Simulated scan of single mutants.
Amino acid sequence: MNTPVAYRQTSAMAIISLVAGLLGWSLLPVIGSVVAIVTGHLARAEIRRRPEALDGDGLAIAGLVLGYLMVAMAIIGLLFVFLFFGGLLAFIAAAS
């Protein structure tokens, strides 16, 4: 006889994490990345609590990776700007 197949539902938090991670690279760089990181961690915890009912760990990980990469690139970019303009100001002050 046929036994019912148990389908696992994709976690909504995992989907939000992936979408926010993609938005972090396009329209909402800071906000999207922070939302992707927070919801990614929430989704992974939710999936670990109910692994028989929820799926989407890969989506959550993708959102986390996109979010963390964007935050890292923003920090590196800010450091570069501060170091460049700080060095430029020091050069101008020494040349005067």
Rank of each mutant, 00 (worst) to 15 (best):
A12N: 07
G32H: 07
I37F: 07
A45K: 14
P4W: 07
Y7E: 14
H41A: 01
D57W: 01
L64F: 04
V34G: 00
A6W: 01
P29E: 07
L27R: 15
H41F: 15
V30N: 06
R49P: 00
Y7P: 04
G32V: 09
A62V: 03
T39R: 01
L64P: 05
T10Y: 06
R50V: 08
S17H: 05
I37K: 00
L22G: 13
L54I: 06
P4Q: 12
L18D: 01
T10W: 01
D57F: 02
E52T: 11
A53C: 00
T10E: 12
Y7T: 11
L22V: 11
V34E: 03
L42G: 08
R48F: 04
G63R: 08
E52N: 13
A12S: 10
I31L: 14
S17N: 03
R50K: 10
N2G: 10
M1H: 14
A12G: 00
V38I: 15
I31V: 14
A20T: 04
V19E: 11
L59G: 08
E46H: 12
V35Y: 04
M13H: 10
R49S: 12
R44Q: 15
L27T: 13
A20Q: 04
L22K: 15
A60Q: 08
A43S: 11
G21N: 04
E46M: 02
V34W: 06
G24Q: 06
S17P: 10
T10K: 09
A60K: 06
I16G: 00
G32D: 06
S11Q: 04
L23I: 02
G24M: 02
V5R: 10
I31C: 07
G58L: 12
V30M: 12
I15P: 00
Q9F: 10
L54H: 05
G24K: 04
A45W: 02
L22E: 14
G24C: 06
L22M: 13
G32C: 06
L23M: 13
S17K: 05
A12V: 11
I37E: 01
G56F: 01
H41D: 07
A43K: 03
A14P: 05
D57H: 07
P51S: 06
I61H: 05
S26T: 15
V5F: 10
A6G: 00
Q9I: 14
R8F: 05
E46L: 00
P51A: 06
M13D: 12
S11P: 00
G56L: 05
A45F: 04
P51L: 09
M1R: 13
T3I: 12
N2K: 12
E46Q: 15
P29F: 07
G40H: 03
I31E: 14
P51W: 06
G58S: 09
Q9S: 08
V5D: 05
L42Q: 13
A43C: 09
I16N: 09
W25A: 11
I37Q: 00
